[in-house]
Amino acid sequence: MKEVKIKIKNLSVYFNYIQALNDVSLEIFENKVTCLIGPSGCGKTSLLRSLNRMNDMIYGFRMKGEVLIDDIDIYDKDIDVVNLRRLVGMVFQQSNLFPKSIYDNLIFAPKILGVKDKSELEEIAEKVCTQTSIWDEVKDRLNESALNLSAGQQQRLCIARALTVNPDILLMDEPSSSLDPVSTSKIEDLLFDLKRNYTILIVTHNMQQAARVSDYTAYLYLGQLVEYDKTTKIFTNPANKQTEDFLTGRFG
């Protein structure tokens, strides 16, 4: 069984006079990993960010079309954006840990959600760190500034932090761009675990990774959706010539 979690209908996104997305329609399936690929500047981040309305705060942002999650229009007037973002978690392209301790980064969101019990907070912190396989590296330095961590560790901590609110949908913008092969494969294992409970959208420039982790792949080019299908289909027998060129590196 295959349930549609997110329905994107004729979505166009503008930043002032730049059109970042042009009439994109796409259905994202529940408990699957969907991968967005495409050349730099094609609108992957813009698409991801319209799913938790992070684009709203960008000056000059306008959009046309609809985004439905569980059949609810998230751009409806009576949507509480704050609650939406608790259900649609995001890992940003650049790691953006707060200049606070590792532990404070991890308990920031739970605390805001009203968790006060100290042992419960500690439990959450340990759980998400174990999930992202960073626990052994941080467990003895939880009170150190998170900015002292290496770039790869910071990235994994960002993923861990995104899990602390226990979202339904997880948006990941190049989550393993500065990770070594070992941590990358740990993140990929994590994705397999996570997709049992979450719907995952992931942007990556690493084609092998896209092929390994995702169930569906969308290829975007110049703000348009060129092709969207099962990953196995896209990587073995793409319907579109452009997709094939991009995947085989004959692009540009």
């Binding site: 938790n52 992070m54 705060m57 704050v82 609650n83 973002r85 608790r86 978690g89 995001m90 940003f92 650049q94 953006n96 840990l97 707060f98 920031f108 969101a109 805001i112 959600l113 932090r161 995104a162 602390t164 609110v165």
Partner: peptide, 19 residues
């Protein structure tokens, strides 16, 4: 980026400013 991180974690605007 910090405002985005905080809002992205489901903090409200005021919570982002305050914390």
């Amino acid at each position: 980026t910090f405002r985005q991180a905080s809002l992205g974690l489901g903090a409200s605007k005021w919570q982002t400013i305050r914390y």
